[in-house]
Write a protein that binds this DNA or RNA. Structure first.
Lengths: 99, 99
DNA sequence: ACTGATGTTCGAGAATTTACGAACTATGGA
DNA sequence: TCCATAGTTCGTAAATTCTCGAACATCAGT
């Protein structure tokens, strides 16, 4: 069973989180994950190669923006909404705002 | 008289703004500008070469985070608080929060 | 006009990030 | 066990970004 690194809530770093969110592809991923609650990698990777998507998932995961859990053969990704809200109140609302 | 490019409020781009804020040096610059209201470039550039600071000022300026006005021999930098708040409500509060 | 102070621009090198194919791992089902 | 599916990791090439020195421009004061 594969294991991923997830920073714990208290060590979330603002520049790192902002950088993770500053890529248009990742921003869109985050919005769709937020809207769906939980999404497999495949559900987001229609347009790009899997290895590219995997890179973006990793960036989001290691910044603490999403949490990835293994469910059988698929990986389910969810926003770390509570952790983000606790550490950077209001950030998620800004990012999820459809402008 | 030198003229700078400042994007107008309506064309502020979230990924671009987030990227501008995702650098620790620039994040600190923004916080100090916000605290002071308006600051010269020199007031922020004690530690790094002027050309490096100028690059960061430009990045912030062209993302629409700060506005630079020329006042005699110095450049005064201020946060574009109203524009940012209008376009991305709550973002500034998150960024200026001293965690 | 000369000088000092303030910043920008230019150019180049180093570091980081992005993108993507290929090989690999793990899981569930036939 | 064999096979297809899901996704990661590796290696590499291209694009961005960061950093900084050097040269340049502008302004204030003398």
């Amino acid at each position: 069973m594969r294991r991923f690194f997830h920073p714990d809530a208290s060590s979330l770093d603002l520049p790192r989180v902002l950088h993770a969110l500053s890529d248009p592809v990742r921003l869109e991923m985050v919005r769709r994950i937020a809207a769906a609650g939980e999404l497999t990698c495949g559900a987001l990777g229609e347009a790009r190669p899997k290895s590219s998507m995997s890179h973006h998932f990793r960036t989001l995961r290691e910044a603490g923006v999403i949490r990835t859990r293994v469910a059988g053969a698929v990986h389910l990704n969810a926003l770390r909404g509570d952790d983000l809200e606790a550490r950077f109140p209001g950030l998620l609302a800004v990012v999820l705002e459809k402008s």
